[in-house]
Amino acid sequence: MSYLRLDALAKSYGGALALDGLSLEIERGACLVLLGPSGCGKTTILNLVAGFLRPDTGRIVLDGQDITALPPHRRDMGMVFQDYALFPHMTLRENVGFGLRMRHVARAEQLQRVDAALASVGLEAYAERTPGQLSGGQRQRVALARALVIRPRLLLFDEPLSNLDALLREQLRTEIRAVLDEAGITAIFVTHDQSEALALADRIALLRAGKLEQFGTPDELYNRPATRFAASFIGGCNLIAQGAATIAIRPHCMRLDPSGPLQAVLETIEFLGPSTRLTLHDAAQKIVVDLATPPSGLFRGMNLGLGWDAAHAWVIAP
């Protein structure tokens, strides 16, 4: 049986439909990533699950209990916000202890659990500081500790990494993944960043205009996107018209082949480190090719023949 079930959730704001009868379920301990462009409804789902919003119709069932009408403070969920939402007038210890105070946990246990939580994110030395004295990455670690220390039934992440710089983002992403695996907590993670989604998720729900575009494992979404939108949103994908059908092929599955089915003009060459990216145009479309070992003698404006592995190409719905 599923641990969390969203059942035909709908929500509109002043006539504009934000969520259009969305249903999905996840297992206990899994990390669900809600992925999509802004305005796709992913944040609305998170707010509905947290209880900050009520759905117009539909139900939310957590561990067999219908929580649709439960107020947020009785849902036992921990949330990590995009802009941290730490209490600026409280020390880290008071911030992390807030949820325990609200639950009337005994004083000694509070102290012990707060210190353990701060230690788990490497900030035990800063317990008496206030959030204003920390960097963005440290603040988000405190927010994570504050959400974890209450041992929530569900951990919610609202684009927690988007205010951090690229290096820190990857580092914290790895830390979050490790924490989730270790604690075995079920989590929902909202992001518009496909690489974050692929790295963190056990299941990805790709959303578009309030509807589920595709739901599956990262592997399924990356290697077999069901629609044109899914193919282009996740990982960049060549969509090549072949008669009436459209064929999708990832850039790294393309190869140079003088006798290949496509002939195109080379426009740009970018060195990316692990590979080199060629951008080409033929009469109908733009084609991107990532080559691990590009041949020498490439130049802008030259004609190249392109081919691909049939095993890595698939036909998608128009």
């Binding site: 947290a50 849902r75 916000f81 939402a85 609200m102 209450i150």
Partner: peptide, 19 residues
């Protein structure tokens, strides 16, 4: 005042008044 703070407090178990 960041209004998310009220949501954060609610999420951590505070009712309206305590938030």
């Amino acid at each position: 005042l960041d209004l998310q703070l009220i949501r954060a407090a609610r999420n951590l178990g505070a009712n309206r008044a305590r938030a």
